[in-house]
Amino acid sequence: MLFNNNIHLDSISSTNNFLLSLRKNNIFSEGLYVTTDFQENGKGQMNNSWESEKKNNLLISILIEPKISINNIFDINRLVCLSIFDLLKLYGINALIKWPNDIIINNRKIAGVLIENIFSNNIISHSIIGIGLNINQGKFLQYSPPATSMFLELINNFHTHQIKQQLLDIIEVRYKKLKIGYSDLNEYNNKLYLLEKSFRFMSNNKQFYGRIKTTLDNGTLVIYDESNGVEREFLNSELKYIF
């Protein structure tokens, strides 16, 4: 097993930040992961907060040392999103991946991924993979898009510990495949949320209707802009979904 070393905290502001703070400690090496029962002000993206009830969800940050080129920076994100997809599939849930880093069921968000990379000479030496997966939480307040959980989808409670172990196993298998050159790009593209559906987006403060066509190997999202019939590529996060 790759993920052998665990630090579990009853409460922490961010498992990603905690893991990062261990950077100078000998324990900071591939296979370490940090979990918590409760994330005080969990970081979604730069500003979005992550709302989680104590012990009801999986909040985990995993450390790997991929040693891959900066050009393959999106590989880890794809791997992790597909791993969460696989996990939910085990429970009979059909999820979709909202580019670049959310997992969606019926227009509701069930999980989010936040990855922080450390580079050395254009090689990714360390990736800190933060995952929040809603498991037993039954109520969500302020969310856009709205949130859901495994409990809300299946009306059943689950052992977070068991789900954590299953997810780690799936990630390990996919990680090994990545290391021997397996490409999961097609898998990822087939599971894109809003694929080929007309939807409202915003870029550089301008709204437009478009259809997601695919993503490229480096993570670039390709959208067909319905207003002018042009395919546009988005690599940076200047793209917003307008719900």
């Binding site: 070393n5 665990n6 630090i7 922490i12 400690n25 000998n26």
Partner: peptide
């Protein structure tokens, strides 16, 4: 992982605000 690393770790944990920690190393 030696004792010094564990001590270091405990310091980090104490600073983090967590009150209960389980390590499996």
């Amino acid at each position: 992982m030696d004792l010094k690393d564990i001590q270091e770790l405990i310091k980090f944990v104490a600073k983090s605000g967590a009150t209960e920690v389980d390590l499996e190393i």
